[in-house]
Amino acid sequence: MVQKILAGDIRSIARAITLAENEDYQAVELMRSLYSHTGKAYLVGITGPPGGGKSTLVDRMIAYYRKLDLKVAVIGIDPSSTFTGGALLGDRVRMQAHATDSGVFIRSMGSRGHLGGLAVATADSAKILDAAGYDIIIFETVGIGQSEIEVASQVDTTVLVTVPGLGDDIQVLKAGTMEIADIFVVNKADRDGVEKSVMAIEQLLSTWDMTEDDFVPPILKVTAKDNIGIGELAQAIEQHKKYLHDSGKFEVRRRNRAVTEVHTLILNQLDKWAHDKMTKDITTRDNIEEVYLKFIDPHTVAREALRELELETMWDKWGQGADGGG
């Protein structure tokens, strides 16, 4: 499978992504073999509130990069899923014109219930696609929230897409998530209110604490449906890429990414362990019942549970300020 992926075999790439999504153990082995082949692709995140025309924008970006003869992969992430765990993924519709282009790979992804899993799946998928020779990998994410921030930490350039008339959303966005943006796009710029949106973003930017060395996010007016402004967007991405390299931040970002990835992987495993422990381990379950009945305090029970991992003494260390925590 490794050889086939490296050779760009579509079926194998698709299967490998499935393994990553399924959190199958084979994916771990696969990553081990593929990892040394990664690092060439440039990762772009396209994010923003629903109704922003992101899929159409991505569709046009694919066309743009294909003209430059670059291979493009897209991972469309839709974190909405029903309580049954099902998902209905429709981002592809806007990009289906590229379905038969052998230089384009499009994959739709649901969250399958927990966000940590999604972050691992997207990171692994990006590596698979990177190793398979895709030059540009685009993550498209719907909505603004935890999953966007996690995904943003995995890409090199994050493009935040909004549209005129979503003014209220900008208010919402201010609450912390807009900082992830390296580039702002006001899509559907043929509509009334485009200047108002641009001004709102400018105003927001003026409140950012930026030094001279920081990259000032450009604000681009784009009308994706009419293919207007796509070249400018690609250029802005290119400029941001250049900035990252020139400033040395590219390496900083990738180093941070390594940290985040390992961190996430550890947390995921611990989370699963904790979940199992609390649902399957009879002693722990009994103990939780006793917490409820106020016979024991929760700290004691957690400490007891952690004993299995020999982690119970961690608390003592933190308490003494010996080994960093938190």
């Binding site: 099902g86 993924l89 429709g90 592809r92 289906q96 649901g110």
Partner: peptide
């Protein structure tokens, strides 16, 4: 199908 727990990918109209 989604409500039954499947992951469904929809491609839209006019597909070859």
């Amino acid at each position: 199908l989604r409500d039954a727990g499947f992951e469904v990918i929809y491609t839209g109209l006019r597909q070859t």
